[in-house]
């Protein structure tokens, strides 16, 4: 199968994720969309790795997974504490950081 198709799939997933981030308000859903974008990138990396015949892409994909895991931990913690304080998981409610 043509590896370029994987790249199309990755682009599609990335776009879905980005759209989700832009239009959804629920912090959890937003989070899932971010994960979707990250994994779209991972897919692209692996595909490139395959296309170029070296392992760099796969190594970076692993790095991304580790960073994503760490991000999930911190992110979920923030979301939980915001939910406790405001009884809502909507990101629009957390718009106090402005001039």
């Amino acid at each position: 199968m043509n590896p370029v198709n994987y790249l199309y799939l990755a682009a599609l997933l990335f776009t879905i994720g980005a759209t989700g981030v832009l239009i959804r308000r629920n912090a959890i859903v937003l989070f899932m969309c971010v994960e979707l974008m990250l994994n779209a990138c991972n897919l692209a990396f692996v595909a490139f790795s395959r296309m170029h015949g070296n392992l760099d892409g796969q190594v970076i994909a692993f790095f991304t997974m580790v960073v994503a895991a760490a991000e999930v931990v911190v992110g979920l913690a923030i979301i939980v504490s915001v939910f406790r304080a405001r009884h809502s998981a909507s990101v629009d409610d957390a718009s106090l950081m402005k001039l």
């Binding site: 981030v21 832009l22 239009i23 937003l30 990101v91 629009d92 957390a94 718009s95 106090l96 950081m97 402005k98 001039l99």
Partner: peptide, 10 residues
């Protein structure tokens, strides 16, 4: 600078 994460993301 309106505080909405979405608009920053856009």
């Amino acid at each position: 600078q309106n505080g909405y994460a979405r608009s920053y993301a856009v």
